[in-house]
Nucleic acid binder design. Structure first.
Lengths: 185, 185
DNA sequence: GTCTATACACTGATAGAC
DNA sequence: GTCTATCAGTGTATAGAC
């Protein structure tokens, strides 16, 4: 595998595990087996490498979610498939995790993929909610953009509750609760 | 103010802003105006001080939430008051933020206040949901514990979406969406 | 209780040889 | 492209004087 590829993948892993502040160039070099000089040859520094890694993770997250969104079934069934999809709950969200990091939020290059990913996610969910309303699956009262934001938030917040409890259980409860509320319409 | 008090309050602030990994003893000393020797006289080290700060923040969070939970009104109205309460949305949750930090999750002394706070929060919300079901405000189908987890997750996830967007708007949408779904029952 | 001195590893690079 | 050397600053303390 190409050196820069190994650097990007290792950085994706470390950002996921330890966040931006908690990830050092040295740790990236050691885990990837790439030397210091080599790393600085391919990337100008930590934030450059992190930007590449975050862009990659954002792409992957969208592709994964889109599998469920454009799959078979009614709007409700596709939202359910998304929420109940197999997840490594205790590892949390590779992208959502970054939103907590002040250095990521402060650097536009790093915040952009994070912001864009959630804009996209809320937009796709809002499409599905609107589609479900048009099909008579959901009540037409609630604003699709608001329901979509609530669904996206349940996932991100579910990760937080699960990690706090050191158990996937609260995540599962949260998504089941959201689906129960959604279904009743 | 007592020295140890100033240390705890400063640590609460820094943990909120920068997380555990991102907060150094040196930064605590500088912001609090307390010297090195003095800090290590009152606390055995960074994690000891963080444990005291997290315990304090957890207490405060519970007291604040309980104001809404035990206030006037129907169960729905009290949940609404909690969700729409004035919040510094872009600062996020002092406790929820810690759940992302691997060093906090790894150290039982630090994870305990985080885990207990959310256990308590989900429990109180479940009480309210059950109360609302008994009063005929909500449909009796959904499991109160699941709905409660969803509500708590919407708040935590709302913070994530807001910080990702660098705007409080997604938080507001998420809680309004949750209330709309809740109301329809 | 508070201060200064000291320690040693790690952070995030840059420089120049190969 | 990769390697080793070097560097000023930080992280997280401990020791001992006052």
């Amino acid at each position: 595998m190409a050196t820069s590829e190994r650097l990007i993948e290792t950085t994706q892993e470390l950002l996921w595990e330890r966040g931006y502040v908690g990830t050092s160039p040295k740790a990236i070099q050691q885990r990837s087996g790439v030397g210091q000089g080599s790393m600085y040859h391919h990337f100008s520094g930590k934030s450059d490498l992190a930007a590449a890694a975050l862009g990659r993770s954002a792409e992957q997250l969208r592709a994964l979610a889109e599998e469920q969104f454009s799959g078979p079934g009614t709007a409700y069934e596709r939202i359910e498939a998304y929420l109940l999809r197999d997840r490594e709950v205790l590892r949390g969200c590779r992208i959502g995790r970054m939103a907590q990091d002040p250095d990521v939020i402060a650097e536009p290059q790093l915040r952009r993929p994070v912001g864009e990913t959630f804009d996209w996610l809320r937009g796709r969910l809002a499409d599905l909610v609107a589609e479900g309303q048009a099909a008579g699956e959901f009540a037409t009262g609630p604003d699709p953009a608001e329901v979509a934001a609530a669904i996206a938030a349940v996932v991100q917040g579910g990760y937080v509750l699960a990690r706090a409890a050191d158990s996937p259980e609260p995540f599962l409860r949260a998504v089941r609760g959201a689906l129960a509320l959604l279904r009743a319409h």
